[in-house]
Amino acid sequence: MTTKDIINPANLVYSKAKLMTENPMHYCPGCSHGVVHKLIAEVIEEMDIQDKTIGVAPVGCAVFAYNYIDIDWQEAAHGRAPALATAIKRLQPDKFVFTYQGDGDLAAIGTAETIHACNRGENIAIFFVNNAIYGMTGGQMAPTTLEGMKTATCPMGRNTELNGYPLKISNLLAELDGTCYVTRQSVQKMASIVRAKKAIRKAFENSMAGKGTSVVEFVSTCNSGWKMSPHDSNKWMEENMFPVYPLGDLKDTEKK
């Protein structure tokens, strides 16, 4: 059987989600954002909730997320996505509402909005891409930048005496009574991608079940900011990011 024979709709096993638009994504080659976008689109498609889902895009690399997933979107001011999502969900309780935020957006400028939305137990899903750097503005230090890690604003490496420590914001959010599910995932391998997708689905389901806030952190790469190839970035992430941001569920009120 030749390749030409195999390429037949009857044999299709993997393809781009229909909810992903035809717009080519603006992300750098190999960026983790693309994989997370795909997973969110796949889950919305599989749950058949396109007409009920509203996304809130951040400021940062994912500012144009609304160009890639075919649902209604709002584009928030920097860090304010959880405030927008709070109102969208409270005013339209039958909708699935999620925010998509990076580390600078969620864990620096938007810390108050993040913590208080979670503390109120807003029935929203928060998808948090943590690549330990400000990608959009050109690779500056983020709250989650690792100790010793070099960025444009800590060129000698993050010095904890000067810059404080990598902020484990998800651990903090797991402590809040308003969150029902806080998990840390990654998207560099097929197996981890499958797990990450399950976490996204669970977060969406929790939001409609009225259980409280779900937070899915994706420990991610920024190969441009890290100045490595995408493949080397994945390796570097596994060796350096995972010890500080270990994968797995930090909280799941279902499993008491």
Binding site: M1, T3, S15, Y27, H33, V35
Partner: peptide, 29 residues
């Protein structure tokens, strides 16, 4: 595809692709 005869249709390439540009087909022989 450089070595098309070796493909088993596992879709790992599709999963990790950040740009959603891979489609995978698979048949049982």
């Amino acid at each position: 595809m450089k070595h098309e005869d070796d493909c088993v249709g596992c879709s790992a390439c599709g999963y990790v692709c950040p740009d959603a540009c891979i489609t995978v087909y698979k048949v049982k022989i």
